[in-house]
């Protein structure tokens, strides 16, 4: 607890400086943090304490956004890991697929949004498709890498003791590749947040955090815009730290094994 206090003391100082600076400048474009906080509360956080102060509006905005984000991310993770492990375990297949992967990940995902709009029409499917396309690459590339470089002694041990194909996959290859795969999953989670916002800003979304951002812009609601941006920052921080927590627990063997060697 002491460590957290010690680490985070600059936060209130910076907020206070920002508040003083913004009040002194008195610009419409740069509202003070107190005004932003008040607007945020009004927008989303006036609900009952039992619901973490989330208002109905907050549920209406956050849930669809998060559902699309996690949905797209989950699809990309499943597809990326399955494809990546298959490609990583076969050097022939990898030769055929590598250039396609290199090129596919170089295409900026937002450039495909107009295409997805034509292909899928339905808003949600377009948004999920954008997220899937944008976030699958880190998972795929890391899974290929992780599965490709499984220690040969591990696979030979599995062969000598006659493990079946399924056992080799679930007991040896996936755990051995897990540290790499997790790194890809974490990177793609932060990309999923970005693409969630992009797809909501680009499409004609009718709900969601990106939609609220556009709505605030149209109404010249600057505290609302600053608030939404801050909210996205907090959301990104939360996503990353909770994923790190899961990663640390799942891969504790990896961290501790490396410390002892």
């Amino acid at each position: 607890m002491n460590g957290v206090v010690h680490r985070l003391w600059p936060v209130p100082v910076l907020v206070a400086l920002w508040e003083a600076g913004a009040r002194a400048a008195a610009s419409t474009y740069f509202p003070p943090p107190s005004a932003i906080a008040a607007r945020l509360r009004e927008l989303w956080f006036s609900g009952p304490p039992s619901r973490l102060f989330l208002s109905d509006q907050a549920l209406q905005d956050f849930l669809p956004s998060l559902a699309r984000m996690f949905g797209g991310w989950a699809i990309a993770c499943a597809a990326g890991i399955a494809l990546g492990v298959a490609v990583g375990r076969s050097s022939a297949l990898a030769g055929y697929v590598d250039p396609i992967v290199e090129f596919g990940r170089a295409i900026p995902p937002p450039t495909l949004i107009p295409l997805f709009v034509v292909l899928f029409k339905v808003d949600v499917r377009m948004q999920v498709a954008t997220i899937v396309y944008g976030v699958i690459w880190p998972v795929l590339v890391n899974s290929i890498d992780g599965a490709r470089y499984v220690d040969r002694q591990h696979t030979e041990t599995a062969q000598v003791f006659g493990l079946s194909r399924a056992q080799r996959l679930t007991r040896i290859i996936l755990p051995a590749a897990a540290p790499k795969i997790f790194a890809g999953l974490r990177l793609s989670l932060s990309l999923a947040l970005i693409l969630m916002v992009v797809s909501e800003l680009a499409g004609s979304a009718t709900s969601g955090i990106g939609y609220e951002l556009l709505y605030a812009q149209q109404n010249f609601d600057l505290p609302g815009m600053w608030g939404t941006i801050a909210l996205l920052g907090v959301l990104g921080l939360l996503l990353n730290s909770s994923f790190l927590l899961v990663e640390r627990r799942t891969l504790s063997w990896h961290r501790r094994a490396r410390q002892t060697n």
């Binding site: 992009v198 556009l214 941006i229 959301l235 990104g236």
Partner: peptide, 26 residues
């Protein structure tokens, strides 16, 4: 660095595209 790090950790995950509507006004 230790003092500024929390700020960096907060600012980094903000999707830059989310700034577009705001910057477009300013």
């Amino acid at each position: 660095e230790a003092a500024v790090r929390p700020l960096i950790e907060f600012l980094r995950p903000i999707p830059s595209v989310a700034l577009i509507p705001l910057v477009a006004l300013i």
